[in-house]
């Protein structure tokens, strides 16, 4: 897929798509993240796992600069600050979105074009083309004129992903993109992420679905306030690592090359 780059923010070859170093962040005086360090190569899908309150959403928000880091740095293709933000497409959690607002799916996706439009300018044909392409990629073009509150949960999620895609970002941050999707929709989404990866894009997603991470992600990042483990799912998703991450007794099964995670019964 041909795509122009935001002026002044060309991704540099041979540079990490995302580099987080010594990141600490929190709310008021409560730390949510401490000394988080990891780097992602371009064309990689990273699954961030961890219990509720582990700081997954805070990590995304800190990468975007929505939460000001206390310490540490975030670089996207070697860029920091606003320039870095413009290379990132973000899908927030469903609960953070006002679904009663009178906008259509198409309106929402067009908002993803803002980083390329800048102030005052009106969307042109290239922007409408990008919106159509983004909605088609998630199979949502026929939903374009529906008010967002009228859509089902899975359709709403796809619209949010389309908004992130419309930005034509180098790095996608998806906060729980597969939660609540049925098996077919989940399969379609993972197929889309795979196509993006082959296109050289980088995806960082958070999820509670460990089996999904094992089957579809290149790397797993186990997070609980800090990085517990980071590496290929086959090496990271082990009983000891998961128990350290979730502070709970989990069992990992490897059945015919597929990894399943379950709770240990007492």
């Amino acid at each position: 897929m041909a795509h122009e780059i935001v002026p002044g923010a060309e991704p540099r070859a041979g540079v990490k798509a995302l580099a987080v170093e010594g990141l600490a962040a929190g709310y008021d005086s409560h730390p949510a993240l401490e000394d988080v360090t990891f780097a992602v190569e371009p064309g990689t899908i990273v699954g961030v796992v961890g219990p509720n309150g582990a700081g997954k959403s805070t990590l995304f928000r800190a990468i975007l600069g929505l939460v000001r880091p206390w310490r540490g740095s975030v670089q996207v293709y070697g860029h920091r600050g606003h320039t870095a933000c413009r290379l990132i497409g973000y899908m927030p959690q469903m609960e953070e979105v006002d679904w009663h607002f009178p906008v259509t799916a198409e309106d929402v996706v067009m908002m993803g074009r803002y980083t390329r439009l800048g102030p005052v300018r009106r969307p042109g044909p290239a922007d409408r083309q990008a919106v159509q392409s983004a909605l088609e990629q998630v199979g949502g073009w026929d939903l374009r004129q529906r008010q967002i509150g009228e859509l089902s949960g899975g359709q709403q999620r796809r619209v949010l992903i389309a908004r992130a895609l419309a930005q034509e970002p180098q790095v996608l941050l998806l906060d729980e993109p597969v939660a609540g999707l049925d098996a077919t929709a989940q399969h379609q989404l993972l197929g889309l992420l795979d196509r993006l990866r082959r296109d050289g894009r980088t995806v960082v997603l958070s999820t509670h679905d460990l089996s999904c991470v094992a089957s579809s992600c290149d790397l797993a990042l186990c997070l609980n306030r800090t990085v517990i483990a980071y590496g290929p799912p086959r090496e990271v998703l082990r009983d000891d690592v998961l128990n350290a991450t979730f502070q709970s007794h989990l069992l990992v099964f490897d059945a015919q090359g597929r990894i399943y995670v379950t709770h240990r019964s007492r």
Binding site: L64, G65, L66, C85, I88, Y90, P92, E96, V97, D98, F101, V103, V108, M111, Y114, T115, R163, Q167
Partner: peptide
């Protein structure tokens, strides 16, 4: 509509 995303943009 979405102050969080607007700020991120």
């Amino acid at each position: 509509y979405d102050p969080t995303m607007a700020a991120a943009s």
